[in-house]
Design a binder for these strands. Structure first.
Lengths: 246, 246
DNA sequence: CGACTCGTTGAGTGATATCAAACCCGGTGG
DNA sequence: CCACCGGGTTTGATATCACTCAACGAGTCG
């Protein structure tokens, strides 16, 4: 339970994106850092604040990014899990343009921001890995714009479920025919631009179609193909196959 | 009309994001490059293609990024103008997750991709500037998710108009009480997740409210404050004040 | 002048929101 | 062990925003 494993996880993640040499590896493992955890719904970062001098990397649990519209409407703009960076999006920006919040209890490593900036700019292999991380996140944002802008309720939710399915698998989480989704229906609505009531009805619809089954907060599917086609899900945008150089 | 000015424009853009030294400047001006132009609606890059080995930087004209949903519905996920990079989003990714298309006739400089990657990874000051560019673009994407997910038609269009207003001014384009918006109403709809018919009605509504006036494809406003408040526009997400380090 | 694309408008429909109530379940305290 | 409480879920009834379909008008290009 030392914090050695924490940086190892970070190392593995980066290495999966770009080949590193020994210098890179030891530099990563030498990064000044602190382990922390947040309770569900705790803020990791608040919109409009000055960006913190530590950068979080998720070790376990889920988190999300959030923006508020006038009138208090909320939009969740991304979801994050093991192996995701929480502050890469602000690595070189000084004002937070959105909030980051824990969804469930999460554990993170906080890395010194200046040190991470330095790695990004002065260690090409690490820099490449970080670039890829940031670019993939932007790609997911584009898919979310499409999701919210051009799919109906059924497609939106099906797509969200497919995306999480694939991302969780890729992140090495336990996904065997289903997974735990610790979002309330209201939060799901905030992620896909719907009302909690309509999310509920749409879940029922998907269940009636035999595409999913639900129990508490776990979602399962015996018909993943059906779900994918309901979502018109194409995982290219997750850039999973690419290690940066093919 | 040599292409000297092209790289100078690029240089100025980068310098506005991060202070550069002489070595950076000459490296930028030495970048292998080609000047090109595209006719309106020409593709600069197609989704699912292998990413090209040149990176475009806009000198004049407008371009947009686009994704298709099943059934042919289209979503425009971003708009670009002078001083924007067209391929930064794929700088370290190998498959295009979206298409890039010219909106009006555009002029671009195409920079050798490997050379730009190299600058990003090996010239810290330039790398920082490129990071900021990419991160701001992601920030705009988050705002678009919010726009499409949580604002009504009036708010969405007002917000788009405000964003373009501010970005065009910041890019040094001529904006004096109004600007030319070379999008068809259908394209505007594709950008904000509405039908062209509804875009039309909403424009009329905004005009009736005295928030805008239209003539052909130019939009003007005598009541920018009113328009901003209709959009609940807060320009923080454009990160214009920040040079990267405050 | 005809053909086309884009903008405008009307009428009818449909998807999603809103409001409100009941229910379910886990947690807490008597 | 039961009663209660509170957040989340489920369901119904109704309202509304935005979509669809369809026609017409206006500008542009050959």
């Amino acid at each position: 339970m030392s914090d050695e494993p924490a940086l190892l996880k970070l190392l593995h993640k980066l290495e999966s994106r770009s080949p590193l040499d020994d210098g890179d590896r030891t530099a990563i493992l030498d990064l000044p850092h602190v382990r922390r955890s947040h309770e569900a719904s705790a803020y990791v970062l608040r919109a409009k604040d000055r960006v913190r001098d530590r950068c979080g990397f998720v070790l376990s649990g889920l988190a999300f990014r959030q923006k508020l519209a006038a009138g208090g409407a909320r939009q969740i703009v991304s979801l994050h899990m093991v192996g995701d960076f929480l502050d890469l999006q602000h690595l070189f920006l000084d004002r937070a343009d959105h909030s980051v919040q824990a969804l469930s209890r999460i554990e993170i490593v906080e890395i010194d921001r200046a040190a991470l900036q330095d790695m990004a700019l002065r260690r090409p292999a690490v820099g490449r890995a970080l670039w890829i991380e940031a670019l993939v996140e932007a790609s997911i944002l584009r898919e979310w714009v499409l999701n919210v802008g051009r799919r109906d309720a059924r497609g939106r939710i099906a797509h969200l479920l497919c995306e999480l399915w694939v991302r969780m698998e890729a992140a090495g989480m336990e996904v065997r025919g289903g997974y735990r989704l610790p979002l309330t229906q209201e939060q799901i609505g905030d992620a896909v631009g719907l009302t909690s009531v309509h999310v509920n009805r749409t879940f029922r619809l998907l269940a009636e179609e035999g595409l999913i089954t639900r129990d508490r907060r776990t979602v399962r599917s015996n018909d993943l193909e059906g779900l994918r086609s309901a979502a018109a899900f194409c995982p290219l945008y997750l850039h999973l196959g690419e290690a940066g150089a093919i």
